[in-house]
Nucleic acid binder design. Structure first.
Length: 192
DNA sequence: CCGCAGATTGACT
DNA sequence: GTCAATCTGCGGG
């Protein structure tokens, strides 16, 4: 099963863990910015912390659409966050990308981040940082992630042994639900 | 190193 | 009117 089939068919928790180790590639001005997913969180309509908990709205409609698309939202008056949609059509589910390991195009990411010194660990180590580094904004909401200029690629799947599970970060509801997953000992995650 | 205040817009009550 | 799936800079230890 490829990653897009997993997103569409498997339970949300399984799909979230399956995203770890996959690649996200952003084409920008003819250059490829390549990254690897190292930290994610799952959000489902049955979950009070999810934007889909209260049902469909103009803002969250892409999470009720087909799996394997982008759900991008704007928050705190200044940050964008990227999710990969999951589940069947009509099911409001998404997986927040919380951190990426930069593989290619680090200097452009640093420019996008307005980072003075190129510190690879400070490029994509947070949901707001990575959208800035990859120049992702609301125009990508609903984007099909099989298509340029923003693509989800197979990468390498990760063994269960290398995945750490914790509660999610930065929310006020369902704070104990263990739906955050990250790669063990990876230096590019947002928080230990 | 750690903790916290401030920034700043839009979605929803 | 309230508050958010965050980040940064600054002040103190």
């Amino acid at each position: 099963m490829d990653i897009f089939e997993i997103l569409a068919r498997e339970p949300l928790e399984v799909a979230a863990k399956a995203l770890l180790g996959r690649h996200i590639e952003r084409m920008l001005d003819g250059q490829t910015l390549a990254t690897r997913i190292v930290e994610v969180e799952a959000y489902h309509q049955s979950d009070p912390a999810s934007h889909t908990f209260r049902g469909p709205s103009p803002r969250n409609q892409s999470m009720f659409g087909p799996a394997g698309h982008a759900y991008v939202y704007f928050t705190y008056g200044m940050h964008h966050c990227l999710n990969v949609t999951a589940g069947k059509e009509g099911e409001g589910a998404g997986i927040l990308i919380r951190a990426l390991e930069p593989l290619e195009g680090l200097e452009t990411m640093a420019v996008n981040r307005v980072q003075k010194e190129l510190n690879p660990r400070n490029l994509c180590s947070g949901p707001g940082k990575l959208t800035q580094a990859l120049a992702i904004d609301l125009s990508f909401n609903g984007h099909d992630l099989t298509q340029a200029p923003l693509e989800l690629k197979e990468g390498v799947s990760v063994s269960e042994h290398d995945i750490i599970t914790t509660a999610r970060i930065g929310i006020s509801k369902a704070i104990d639900t263990p739906w955050r997953f990250y790669l063990k000992d990876n230096p590019y995650i947002s928080k230990p």
